[in-house]
Design a protein around this nucleic acid. Sequence first.
DNA 1: TTATTAATTGTCATGTAGACAATTAATAAT
DNA 2: ATTATTAATTGTCTACATGACAATTAATAA
Lengths: 234, 234
Amino acid sequence: MIEYSSQPHYLVAVDCIVFGFDGETLKLLLVKRSLEPEINKWSLIGGFVGAEESTDDAAIKVLKKNTGLDGIYLEQFKVYGKPDRDPIERTLSVAYFALIDIKKYSQQLNADYHAEWFPINERPELIFDHNTMVADARKRLRYKAALHPILFELLPKKFTLPQLQTLFEAVNDMKIDTGNFNRKMNSTGLLVKLDEKDKSSSKKGAYYFKLNHKKYRSDFHLVFNLLPNLSLDL
Amino acid sequence: MIEYSSQPHYLVAVDCIVFGFDGETLKLLLVKRSLEPEINKWSLIGGFVGAEESTDDAAIKVLKKNTGLDGIYLEQFKVYGKPDRDPIERTLSVAYFALIDIKKYSQQLNADYHAEWFPINERPELIFDHNTMVADARKRLRYKAALHPILFELLPKKFTLPQLQTLFEAVNDMKIDTGNFNRKMNSTGLLVKLDEKDKSSSKKGAYYFKLNHKKYRSDFHLVFNLLPNLSLDL
DNA sequence: TTATTAATTGTCATGTAGACAATTAATAAT
DNA sequence: ATTATTAATTGTCTACATGACAATTAATAA
């Protein structure tokens, strides 16, 4: 039997930076950590990678366990591999960011798992290097969202143009001109206008749109310019 | 003493996809693997992550050991974490791509470490999932190079416009109009024209340029459009 | 009727992009 | 001196994108 002699072995975890959008504010899903050390402190959703699963599998599992949701947009974006990032024992963490339609998230699981949504700018301090992970994930989200129509993952099946614009403004911390924004979005071919209106936030009501999934899939990898004054930092 | 109970532990490796450019062809640095299994087969440069080093440290070390070079452009781009990717024992691999000025690479180390440059399109079969890693790294390189001036990392201190164009054409597998290309490159402010000429490939000779490092550093994160007909796939 | 938000449209200046052609330049080889 | 060769720049044309800003039309609850 061949062996790799006496190389050191490490724990491997996954951590998920879960973004959500409620129509107004960009949010982050956090949990109270259930094991020592730092028990009861706020933390990203995460878990160890089991013997029979890939890191992708582990991230999917973690997300399922904490939100009850399947088929979530997940993207591995960085490994955190400093030797001392976990004070107890060396643990590498493979970080993923996830985009969730917040309305799909079932409230009772919230209670079960002590998970809670926080407005991204009013979140508590997190354990270990999780604050850094969140900052990195935000940057990556901004970057990706400027070039690919990824933010649709955060919206419910039916959404309005004002909601879409609010989302873009929240992610990028900027005001966007409505006329130009709508023109641009309509020109992507990604939107399908529905007959129904959302009258919850105005008298006139805003038409609902749904995503053209076929176009979304086929054009996802193309490079768009979805942001005015594109100037990113990553 | 707190412990994470009986979670499984794994080996963690780094693998580097090392790109080089000789003025004509995009190349890949490979080594003959020195341990079982698959000993003497071609492989990416890699190694296990030691107990006292971060994954970034490990990648730097691996590169230093195999090329003798420091200060190489290195970017972590993906973790390969399938349980069975290594037949002997579960090993996660953190993949980095590296960009090397091929002229800096010292030939004698080549012999010592059995490392060899292959034209990227005429490379041998690689072990494990290394073929996939190379394909992924190429895509990532193309993507990044279209948006950021990263390809300068592959060029020597002095380079000519024709060399630069050839490099862009090699990375992206396309012909580029010289007039438009030179206009675009000159307009970035990244180039500093030198007095000296390179007469090796023409009678007239092509002026050497060097990189404006200050501008390079300050503008690196901005999103450029360095490719005609930008249409990427990642 | 009014206030309010939605959605579209217009306009203007500016810039980029790319196809394509032409020109000027330098110099080694003949 | 002429020629062949590659380098580098420039011109031109069309098309389209961009973004600032304003104006307009629309729908409807209060």
